[in-house]
């Protein structure tokens, strides 16, 4: 590398500082709001840091007293975990055989093209019949119904990721095992799947994050604590249900915690998953 001039160094550090500020400031502010007393948040000029730190809202939202605002929030947290978790697992289970088949049988590759093509369909184009079908089956406002609907988003996406994952595993390994007399499923179980574990993990994580983030279907298809997810609960809070901005911020922090932790810890995996899929898909 060529030596950098002093001016260039200053420019780079200034730009880096600006970038850090832009990325961090809103997130830090979300947290500060969640621990500021209501009076500080309505002050003019605004208090950027509370005089007394107030964590009580976390207690309010995570309270398990029956028939309270906290219980309603915890229920939505639970619903989000269940729906996102089970939808991801089902999506992966479907994506593994399908992804492998497409990866090893190029002649049917076009079918994956169609499957991925559905990813661009706007949810509004499916919403009305899905609503009517769920109503007919009695699956509105149920975790099962929402899980099934989430497959519209997760299944194509995970299949795509799994396919590019299998592409990276040499066929020769499978062929060798088969020559030794192993059947297809044995080969897959012993050779392919262990090698595909990382990509399975990445796909599941992506699926989970997508489902955790989903709002539109949840807004339409759930109505109360039995199935309402976190995103809808937060939109309700922000839409005028509470006037304490701090409480809204607290709900935001709690909802952001799982994906942010996943993001920070698994960053490398997530990015390589995205770029691999992106380039080869």
């Amino acid at each position: 590398m060529a030596q950098r001039s002093l001016a260039a160094s200053i420019a780079i550090y200034a730009a880096a500082l600006l970038l850090a500020l832009v990325v961090l400031a809103p997130i830090v502010w979300l947290f500060v709001m969640s621990i500021s007393p209501a009076a500080d948040l309505a002050a003019k000029p605004l208090h950027w840091w509370p005089e007394t730190v107030d964590f009580s809202r976390y207690g309010v939202l995570l309270s398990s007293v029956p028939n309270s605002a906290g219980a309603a929030f915890v229920a939505s947290l639970y619903n989000s975990l269940i729906v996102a978790g089970s939808a991801s697992v089902i999506a992966i289970l479907i994506a593994i055989p399908a992804g492998w088949a497409v990866s090893r049988t190029p002649s049917i590759g076009w079918s994956l093209g169609i499957v991925i093509g559905t990813y661009m369909l706007p949810p509004v184009a499916l919403a009305v019949p899905l609503y009517m079908a769920l109503a007919y089956l009695g699956l509105l406002n149920s975790l099962l119904g929402l899980t099934l609907v989430y497959l519209t988003i997760l299944a194509p996406f995970t299949t795509w990721l799994m396919k590019s994952g299998f592409d990276g595993i040499p066929r020769e390994l499978e062929a060798a095992a088969m020559l030794d007399g192993a059947g297809l499923f044995t080969t897959l179980r012993i050779i392919t799947l262990p090698l595909a574990l990382p990509v399975m993990g990445t796909s599941a994580l992506f699926a989970f994050l997508l489902a955790w983030d989903e709002f539109f279907y949840a807004l339409l298809f759930t109505s109360d604590q039995r199935a309402k997810t976190l995103t809808v609960a937060i939109a309700d809070l922000a839409g005028g249900r509470v006037s304490d901005y701090g409480l809204i911020a607290t709900a935001g922090v709690l909802a952001a915690l799982p994906p942010v932790l996943v993001g920070l810890l698994m960053q490398r995996v997530l990015i390589s998953g995205l770029t691999n899929g992106g380039v080869k898909g």
Partner: peptide
């Protein structure tokens, strides 16, 4: 990764 990980609604 932080802004990207933040749920859209949040």
């Amino acid at each position: 990764i932080l802004p990207w990980a933040l749920p859209t609604i949040v």
